[in-house]
Amino acid sequence: MATETDSSSDGVDWQSESTSVETGVRERIAERYRRYVREPIVIAWADRRTRVGIFILGVYALMAVVDVFGLYRDPEPSQAERLLAPFVNWTYPLGTTRSGVDLLALIIDSTPFILLMITAGGVWATSVAVVVGTVSGYKGGRVDSVIMGISDFFMAIPGLPLVIVLAITLSPKNPIFLGVVLTINYWAGLGRSIRSQVLSIREENYVEASRTMGTSTPRIIFKDIMPNLMPYVMVNFVLAARYTIFASVGLYFIGVLPYTGQNWGVTLNNAYHQGALFTDAALHWFLVPVIAIVGLSFGLILVSQGMDRIFNPRVRTRLTGESESVDEEANTTTTEVY
């Protein structure tokens, strides 16, 4: 009997331990969902600028999906009346070029290439700058001197001539590689700016406390320093992406980059050289890609402004607290009704 009692009690203990482990896992998942999914969505949606920016970027993402899955016609010559004005024939809502190519098809066909290029350029420039700036600013001493010396060397190289030489030499056709080439030395100035931010953050009391407790350098950088840098990093990510758009369009326009399929810069080049700026009938051919460029840049700026609210701890706590109080009031009201 004693043996049976012991075995049954062992079974109860094992089951209770298993239940507690599962409960702990569920609580951790719920906490991560609240912190990394629900709170950012609540904060972003509370800002009108962010909502507008997300909508604009969503339109471009939708165009990329439409092109990838072939849900809209491909741009081809003589597929419609030549120099058709916008909003006259809704089969071709943005009008056509001098050769009868659907302008909306041109814009949609270029969108995936553009999005991949600006993402690659922004990620490359900001990633290198964050690594260089945080390590240099936090470590100091000889490490700081060496890293800043390399950074100053790249800053001294004229950016546009370097990009033109690399573009002519390498003839980049892959959008990811092209984005890296266009921002090849953009990181240098941003890295120095991030270093100056880190120099002030590392003197804060909580950073000093972590260092006194023997916390490792990578943990201090990721847990204590990076959260304070994220608004600044996100804004500069958008600036790097905008720089990539303008640089690529400009180089395509002057014919430095190889014409690999459709691109907004190629469309501008063709429109300019075929007199779109000098005749009212063809002006829309030039304006449509310009509006596409400005719209994407504007959407990125609006979203970057909302990122400051997401990464700002005070704003995040206030907004999420307000949303939780609203939820509690709604639940209380529902309970009283029933």
Rank of each mutant, 00 (worst) to 15 (best):
R73C: 01
I176E: 05
R49L: 14
S171T: 15
I245E: 03
Y338F: 10
Y92G: 01
N263A: 15
T23G: 02
M155E: 04
A125K: 06
V66N: 06
G95R: 06
A281I: 08
Y259R: 14
N270M: 07
G24H: 09
D102R: 02
A46E: 06
G53H: 07
I114P: 00
P93V: 08
D109W: 06
T50N: 13
T91H: 11
R242L: 11
A241G: 09
S297L: 02
M213G: 07
Y36E: 15
G121V: 10
Q262C: 00
D280R: 14
W45T: 12
F253T: 01
T96Y: 12
T119W: 10
R82A: 08
N236W: 05
G141P: 01
G149I: 01
V146L: 15
L83G: 00
I221Y: 10
Q305S: 03
P40N: 11
L277V: 04
I176N: 05
N185A: 14
R48E: 08
G191K: 07
V238N: 13
A240M: 07
L71F: 15
I164Q: 02
E31M: 11
V165P: 00
D280T: 14
S136I: 11
L229Y: 10
A292Q: 05
A2T: 13
I107C: 00
V235N: 09
L251C: 03
I107F: 01
I56R: 15
S9Q: 15
T244Y: 08
L199Q: 12
R28I: 06
F237W: 14
P313H: 05
P93A: 06
E17M: 13
W285Y: 15
W264D: 01
Y243S: 13
L106C: 05
D10F: 10
P40A: 11
H273A: 01
R195I: 00
V88R: 13
Y33V: 11
S216K: 13
Q79L: 02
T97V: 03
M148C: 04
L277A: 07
A188K: 03
R73V: 03
S323D: 15
E76P: 00
R35H: 14
L257N: 03
A271M: 00
S99H: 05
L103M: 12
S196R: 10
P231N: 14
V101M: 09
Y272F: 15
Y72D: 01
T260M: 08
E81C: 01
L229S: 07
V315E: 04
V165W: 11
T19H: 08
I150H: 00
F55Q: 09
T320A: 06
L170G: 04
D308S: 11
M1G: 12
L116G: 03
F55P: 02
L115Q: 12
V238L: 01
G11H: 08
A44T: 13
V326G: 00
A46Y: 07
T333H: 05
S78K: 09
V165I: 14
L106I: 13
V128E: 07
I310P: 01
F113K: 06
